[in-house]
Design a protein around this nucleic acid. Structure first.
Lengths: 180, 180
DNA sequence: GCAGCGACTGAGCAGAATGCTCACTCCGCC
DNA sequence: GGCGGAGTGAGCATTCTGCTCAGTCGCTGC
């Protein structure tokens, strides 16, 4: 895996990769999601101006996913999480997805390669609720089989920090960075 | 069964359910993650004071998940997402989880009921990278089998709004709420 | 070698938001 | 009837934001 021709900084607007400064900013954001621009500027040893520019750039570049992601279903009363692998009549996939999207408890769905076609992440208030939801999934026209696995525990909570750190090492720094 | 209570992240938090006002605030937050307290107060027809109190309450209550969740792996150069179901030697589960946690690309992991023991969400830069990661998973002592399914598409992007709306209808309002 | 360009900086400024406190009002509850 | 929780409006010092401008630095292209 080669590093791109090493111009540093984000010169191209559509460039996907973040440079070291962006990564450090994200790390700071993780440490204090509601921190002020001023605080980050100080923490990163950058000027307020720069941080402000980077922040808006991150947003407009789509490096930040929607806020939905930060809402804990448990707080809403959905204590259970389950994963449902779904086998479908493939030609009808689009309609099936539409049908599944009607079920609020389906909080995420991926199309998969391999033996099963779809992987759903669902949340439920309790076991009975999960049973009902499972039924709702099966009721979607085109769904041929659904296998539910209850999440017994989130053994590794969603995390991006290790990747950020790896990414930071890969893109060491911009010209102006002198901090370790 | 295979649940050492403490090692699993999903502990029973003694959080009260969110009331209608909290839900409306979350909805507003989804609409504008960086919105100011003042703006939300106006949007919800509440006083600035109240919104401020609710916001801090939400945070301290743990209704908001870490910021990690909002970082898009694609922006970091991880173009691929895959799900790996893992069968393990169950008595060694805690050590296995520890081992898996060493792999940065494993961004999330759940203990499952049912045929497989673990479900991993992994990200990778490309196919070759995914192959390497798959190897790393298999190399963890105690892992007996791992089946990788590549995510071909995020057919339903992670979403909480439908649940919020349902939740809002379920908990109509607090005593002071008169707004629709 | 020099001009251009992009990234970063420091300064400045008006207006807005924050954090906090206080006094007061509702409303349900024991 | 008194209490406590939740909300309100006001006030105030401090801080942050959003924006602009002029200037520096280092690479890139001519």
């Amino acid at each position: 895996m080669l590093t791109p021709p090493e111009s540093f900084g984000v010169s191209v607007r559509d460039m996907r990769r973040l440079d070291g400064t962006d990564v450090r900013l994200l790390l700071a954001l993780v440490a204090d999601p509601r921190g002020t621009v001023v605080a980050f500027a100080q923490a990163l040893g950058l000027s307020r101006n720069t941080v402000q520019a980077r922040m808006t750039a991150l947003e407009s570049r789509g490096a930040l996913l929607p806020f939905d992601r930060r809402i804990d279903p448990v707080a809403l009363g959905y204590q259970l999480t389950a994963f449902i692998t779904v086998h479908v009549h493939q030609p009808r996939l689009p309609a099936i997805v539409q049908g599944l999207a009607q079920i609020p408890e389906v909080v995420e769905a991926y199309g998969l390669s391999g033996p099963s076609d779809l992987l759903l992440r669902v949340v439920a208030r309790d076991a009975e609720d999960l049973f009902r939801i499972n039924g709702a999934v099966l009721a979607v026209a085109g769904v041929e089989r659904a296998e539910t696995s209850l999440a017994m525990g989130e053994v590794i909570p969603y995390r991006m920090v290790p990747l950020l750190e790896a990414s930071g090492r890969a893109h060491p720094a911009t010209a102006h960075e002198t901090l370790g």
